[in-house]
Every structure is written in structure tokens, then in C-alpha cells.
Computed example of a mutant assay.
Amino acid sequence: MAHLGMVLQTGPYTYENADTVVKLADTALAEGHEVSIFLYIDGVIAANKNIDTPDERNLNQLLQALADKGAAIAACGACSKFRGITDEAFADDIEMGSIVDFADMLMEVDAVINFAM
């Protein structure tokens, strides 16, 4: 099976990129593929559990569900810090990472899809 990497750079409630990442990752996991997701720039906001969101589109919970299914999810620590997000604001299985973790992900995956503006 393939190892799919995704980079989410856009905010969760400005574009539908976060929703696409969640649906694509869920489908890939269901088909037996490995999935790694790196939250970068405003993409880190999707993992913030302190945002008051509608239940049907709570991206933090949707990302946690992906992690529960085996997706590796990391958020850029500098991007998070600059947006006032601490690692306590993330779901349990979402790691505060660095650009080094991003580079490691790029080395491990078979394909990368970048979700930007």
C-alpha cells in the first residue's frame, strides 16, 4: 500500500481544504494506505480544540478521529506559537512538530498533496 502525505496550509473555516483533507485521508485509511498530515501556516487552527465550532464540522474532532484510525498528524510549532496555540489546545494524538518533522514526512511518503490557497 502507498503512504500518502498531505499538507494543510489554509484556515479551517475560510476554505474547504480542511474538509477535503479529512475526507481524502479517511478514504485512504479505509483502503489500507498510510496517511501523514502536516498542519502548516493557518492549517494549525484546524487542530485547535478551543475553537467553538458546529458539531457537524468540528475539525479538531475529525482530525482526532483520523489519528485514532492511524493517521500521523503533526502541527508546525512555530506556526502554532505565532497564532497563540499551545500544544495543550491540540487533540491528544496531534503532535506539535517542526519543519524538520515536515521534511521527515516528505522523505517517507510516496506522494504529497498540498492544500494551499
Rank of each mutant, 00 (worst) to 15 (best):
A67W: 09
D87R: 06
I94T: 03
D87E: 15
L59G: 00
N60I: 00
V44H: 09
L66T: 10
N50F: 05
T53W: 12
A72F: 03
N48R: 02
E95P: 05
A47T: 12
I85A: 07
V100D: 14
Q64N: 01
D68S: 15
D93E: 10
A46Q: 08
N48S: 11
P54S: 07
L63F: 13
E88G: 00
G70E: 06
F90T: 01
G77V: 00
D92N: 12
K49W: 12
G77R: 02
A89Y: 10
D87L: 00
I41C: 03
R57F: 13
M96W: 07
E88N: 11
Q61M: 08
F82N: 12
A78E: 14
A71F: 08
I85H: 10
A89H: 15
L62C: 09
R83Q: 09
E56S: 03
D52G: 06
A74I: 02
I99K: 08
M96I: 07
Q64D: 05
A71Q: 08
I85R: 05
R83Y: 14
E88V: 01
M96L: 09
T53F: 03
N60F: 04
K69V: 14
V44L: 08
A78L: 12
T53M: 15
P54T: 08
I85C: 11
N50G: 06
A46M: 08
S80A: 12
G43A: 00
L63Q: 09
E95T: 05
V100Q: 09
R57S: 13
A91Y: 06
D55M: 06
N60C: 13
N60W: 10
S98Y: 06
A89M: 15
A67H: 04
K49F: 09
D55P: 12
A47K: 01
V44M: 03
A89E: 10
M96V: 03
K81T: 05
V100K: 09
A89R: 14
N50M: 04
G43W: 00
D42T: 01
D55C: 00
D68Q: 13
I73A: 09
D42W: 11
A67P: 15
S98V: 02
D42E: 14
A72S: 09
F90G: 09
I99E: 14
A78K: 00
A75Y: 07
E95H: 03
F82W: 04
N58T: 07
D55W: 07
S80L: 02
L59K: 05
N50L: 02
I94Y: 13
F82D: 11
I99P: 12
G97V: 08
A72P: 07
E88Q: 07
K49Q: 07
A74N: 05
A71R: 10
A46E: 10
I99N: 12
L62P: 10
N48I: 02
A91L: 07
D42L: 02
N48Q: 01
I41G: 02
